[in-house]
Amino acid sequence: MKVVYFLVAILALTSSLVSAYDPSPLQDFCVAAKEKDGVFVNGKFCKDPKLVKAEDFFRHVEPGKTDNPVGSNVTQVFVDQLPGLNTLGIALARIDFAPKGLNAPHTHPRGTEILIVLEGTLYVGFVTSNQDGNRLFTKVLNKGDVFVFPIGLIHFQLNVGYGNAVAIAGLSSQNPGAITIANALFKANPPISSEVLTKAFQVDKTIIDYLQKQSWYDNNN
C-alpha cells in the first residue's frame, strides 16, 4: 500500500510540474482574442473559431533597426504579436546585430531558447545557476550554427564579426518573457534601494547612483 501512495505522490508532483509550463491545447487552435471585459488569468481568451482567418496565423517580420546604444534589435513574435500562437507553446524572435552589437545578458523565465545564425558571427554564452557553480558556457557561432540556452538562465549574444549579423530564436512558450539584467536592476520602477544594490555588488554608493541614472536601452520591440 505504501508503494501505491508513493506512486500517486510522484504522479501528482510530475503533473503539477508539467502544468507549470504552457499547457497542451485541447482543440486545433485558440486564436487569442482581444477581450476587454474578462479577467486575465493565464494565456488569452479564445476567438470564436468561426471568425478565425489565415491572417491570425501570419506575421511578416522586417529587419530591426540597430542604430541604438547596444547595436542590436530583437523583434519578438510572441502571442501578443501573433494571436495564432495562443496555447501552442512556442514563440520566435528575430535578432539583428550591427558590427559589435550586443544582445545584453538577459533571461527568459518561461522558455528555453534555441538560436540559429543566419548571417555573421556571434559569440554566445549562458551562465548556470548558483547550485551549479555559476559556470559559463560559450561558443563562437557562424552561419548555420545552432545553440541552446536552457530555460531561465542568463545568456547573451555578441556580434564579433566585421559586418551585420542576423539570428532567429525559437522559444518553448507562447510568451517566454524577457528580463534584461541591467535594466531590471538599475531601471526598476520604483528604483531598488541603493542600500540593497550597494551590499549586493559590494561597491560604493556613488557607483550605484551613477548606474541608476543611466538611460538603459531596451532593444526588444
Rank of each mutant, 00 (worst) to 15 (best):
28 D>M: 08
92 L>N: 09
12 A>S: 11
158 L>Q: 13
137 F>P: 00
149 F>K: 06
80 D>A: 05
199 K>M: 02
184 A>S: 15
106 H>L: 11
95 I>V: 15
150 P>Y: 01
13 L>C: 11
66 T>G: 04
14 T>F: 13
102 L>M: 14
159 N>V: 12
191 P>K: 06
148 V>A: 13
190 P>V: 07
42 N>L: 14
96 D>N: 15
103 N>I: 06
77 V>Y: 11
134 N>Y: 14
26 L>A: 02
16 S>W: 05
183 N>D: 06
187 K>D: 15
89 G>M: 07
33 A>E: 14
197 L>V: 02
40 F>K: 15
75 T>Q: 07
20 A>R: 11
88 L>Y: 04
116 I>K: 09
90 I>Q: 05
18 V>T: 11
95 I>T: 15
204 D>L: 04
161 G>S: 11
121 T>Q: 14
3 V>P: 00
14 T>C: 13
43 G>D: 10
95 I>H: 09
49 P>Y: 09
46 C>M: 11
131 Q>M: 09
214 Q>I: 02
33 A>S: 10
72 S>N: 05
7 L>I: 14
150 P>C: 05
28 D>H: 04
176 P>H: 05
60 H>C: 11
124 V>D: 03
53 K>F: 01
18 V>Y: 01
116 I>E: 08
62 E>K: 15
102 L>C: 04
102 L>Y: 03
69 P>N: 10
33 A>F: 04
19 S>R: 13
209 D>C: 01
212 Q>L: 04
9 A>H: 01
197 L>P: 06
213 K>L: 07
37 D>I: 09
55 E>P: 00
164 N>V: 07
212 Q>I: 11
99 P>V: 02
159 N>H: 05
86 N>M: 05
93 A>D: 01
80 D>Q: 08
170 G>Q: 06
101 G>K: 13
204 D>Q: 10
64 G>S: 11
136 L>D: 00
112 T>K: 02
74 V>C: 07
19 S>L: 15
85 L>P: 02
174 Q>M: 06
12 A>P: 00
72 S>G: 12
65 K>Y: 03
175 N>I: 01
48 D>F: 06
18 V>G: 00
61 V>I: 15
92 L>T: 07
78 F>N: 09
108 H>E: 03
167 A>P: 00
149 F>Y: 13
152 G>Q: 01
53 K>V: 10
62 E>I: 08
204 D>V: 00
85 L>D: 04
118 L>Q: 12
50 K>I: 10
